[in-house]
């Protein structure tokens, strides 16, 4: 099988979309989106991006919900390795390409790294406008009034937006963008990130990007605080870390425990502690 599974023309098309996406931060570029031997909705957008950009020298990390060992992460990593024979890592710092679903790693990323996020709903306007042509017109006019109305209605009723994850962001003061289903805790990491962030939606056939050092801000009213998930006074029951995004686990004994969601980060903390 050829390196990276996809034929060269498919890669060229994805690369072209990727370059245009980098040039117009937050704008969704359409692409043909090939079917892969992995089901639609399981990360095929991110996977196509990864397969189109990866080369022999890249070290790869794949995570799902913060975990390298999750079944879907294992499956995607195994598939990529089977078609590239590339080196893989669990360490955020060592990776050149990180493909992730629903999380941005705890450890800061650096210049030259690429974060590929899997996206189920690339269109930030879906919840307020179902028609894709009208969505495109709204983006063309930078007309996000309907999003603001939604935010206003939620705030009036519940004191804040009801959106828990995939919180809308404004990119480079121009495009409203769906940042993929990351928690609000990760939203602030999009701003001025040193790594290139590529977002791929396979089923919806869209690629978009945030170049390094790009202004990315959550859509919010000026007089309202952007509340992120808080795990105040919680410590990881495994490594003792605090101030990170945590998983809430209900044990068989009925206890509630908290663990670092980023398992590679947790391993590192544990190792540091042991030393």
């Amino acid at each position: 099988m050829r390196y990276g599974f996809l034929d060269e023309d498919a890669k060229k098309e994805i690369r072209r979309a990727t370059l245009k996406a980098i040039a117009i931060p937050g704008y969704q570029v359409s692409f043909a989106s090939r079917e892969l031997p992995i089901a639609r909705g399981w990360g095929t957008g991110g996977l196509q991006v990864t397969l189109a950009i990866i080369n022999e020298e890249d070290c790869l990390k794949v995570i799902d919900q913060g975990c390298d060992g999750s079944v879907n992460a294992v499956n995607i990593r195994n598939f990529i390795v089977s078609v590239t024979d590339n080196q893989t890592t669990l360490d955020t710092v060592c990776a050149d390409i990180i493909q992730s679903r629903h999380r941005i790693p705890e450890e800061p990323m650096r210049e030259g790294q690429t974060l590929v996020l899997q996206v189920p709903y690339p269109e930030v306007l879906t919840n307020v406008e179902a028609d894709s042509y009208k969505q495109k017109v709204m983006h063309a006019n930078s007309d996000y009034a309907k999003l603001w109305v939604l935010l206003y209605e939620d705030t009036a009723q519940f004191g804040d937006s009801r959106i828990g994850h995939r919180y809308p962001v404004m990119v480079h003061d121009r495009y409203a963008m769906d940042p993929s289903p990351i928690p609000k805790y990760d939203t602030k990491k999009l701003n001025n990130n040193k790594a290139l962030i590529l977002l791929g939606a396979g089923r919806e056939k869209k690629i978009y990007a945030i170049p390094p050092y790009t202004k990315v801000e959550p859509l919010k009213f000026e007089d309202r605080e952007f509340k992120v998930e808080s795990f105040a006074n919680k410590k990881c029951a495994r490594c003792g870390a605090s101030g990170v995004f945590m998983d809430e686990v209900h044990t068989n004994e009925g206890e509630v425990k908290f663990y670092c969601n980023d398992t590679a980060y947790c391993d590192k903390q544990l190792e540091k502690g042991a030393r």
């Binding site: 089901a39 639609r40 909705g41 399981w42 095929t44 799902d64 919900q65 913060g66 999750s70 879907n72 679903r101 629903h102 999380r103 189920p120 519940f158 004191g159 804040d160 937006s161 009801r162 959106i163 828990g164 994850h165 995939r166 289903p181 990351i182 928690p183 609000k184 805790y185 089923r203 509340k227 998930e229 808080s230 995004f245 945590m246 998983d247 809430e248 969601n261």
Partner: peptide
Amino acid sequence: QGFTNHYKLPHYVTFQADLQVYENA
């Protein structure tokens, strides 16, 4: 079919995020 079945994948990060927003509300 793919998208319907993807809901079998873990969603605990997003659910945790939603729960916190619910608690706040």
